[in-house]
């Protein structure tokens, strides 16, 4: 009897961390399936109003490692040359007119619309979140993510992941109060070359912006090795020269 109890105890004790580890491992795989750890890409951001009218922005972005990302606006003319930098939870915006980088917060939006700075300058999910629970579904899994620190834009994320490809289908982003802030939909899986097969479109809506929709279209994503000095305030006015 004692042996049986011991086996049950060991199984229960060992199962919990193993399950959590699986979730975190799965999250890391989702990250790598979405993009290489260091890469360059182009993105078109579209903000669509309830009447169907839209605004478009085109950005060039580079990312290195777990916590560094820089981008620059290529169009429209009113935004051209604006660049953003993210190192961990630190974010800066450089506006050519202003002539110096200013700190911005993850909840603001450099473009307006439903995407905030945290969405536009997204790091790996596994860098910011722990997977607390994995739920099996017909198509795959639901990962329940919790922010590692209180400086992350969303306190919790619920991520629907396809079973075979381990690519996200949908994420729901929640504030610490439990309120749903927005939902991201991952669409149109595309082969970018170099082994990168991922959704080329992310669409978002939010109960806070009823009727409004924002879309992000990805293009020319490829792995790129970049020096660390690219991700500094001094380099922000020169990000476009990396293209």
């Amino acid at each position: 009897m004692k042996k049986i109890l011991l086996v049950i105890f060991i199984c229960l004790f060992a199962a919990a961390p193993a399950f959590a580890l699986d979730g975190n491992e799965m999250l890391k795989k989702v990250d790598r399936n979405l993009n290489p750890e260091s890469y360059e890409m182009y993105r078109k951001l579209m903000d669509i109003e309830p009447d169907g009218s839209k605004k478009e922005f085109v950005m060039y972005a580079v990312k290195k490692g777990k916590e560094k990302m820089a981008s620059v606006f290529l169009s429209p003319a009113s935004e051209k040359g604006r660049s953003t930098l993210r190192i961990g939870e630190n974010m800066w915006l450089y506006i050519p007119n202003v002539g110096k980088p200013i700190r911005i917060t993850s909840l603001q939006s450099v473009t307006g619309g439903v995407f905030n700075n945290s969405d536009i300058m997204r790091l790996d999910y596994s860098a910011e979140y722990n997977c607390e629970k994995v739920e099996a579904t017909d198509k795959g899994h639901i990962l329940h993510l919790k922010a590692k620190t209180n400086t992350v834009a969303y306190d919790r994320i619920k991520m629907w992941v396809y079973g075979k490809s381990l690519l996200p289908d949908k994420t729901e982003c929640f504030a610490s109060s439990g309120m749903l802030i927005k939902t991201l939909y991952f669409k149109k899986v595309k082969d970018f070359g170099g082994g990168i097969v991922r959704p080329a479109v992310i669409e978002t809506d939010s109960p806070l912006y009823k009727g409004y929709k924002s879309i992000m279209i990805f293009a020319k994503m490829k792995a790129k090795d970049l020096p660390d000095e690219v991700f500094t305030l001094n380099y922000m006015p020169k990000v476009e020269s990396l293209r």
Partner: peptide, 10 residues
């Protein structure tokens, strides 16, 4: 919306 993947600014 035509989600064209050709971005001229590229």
């Amino acid at each position: 919306l035509d989600l064209d993947f050709e971005i001229p600014e590229v």
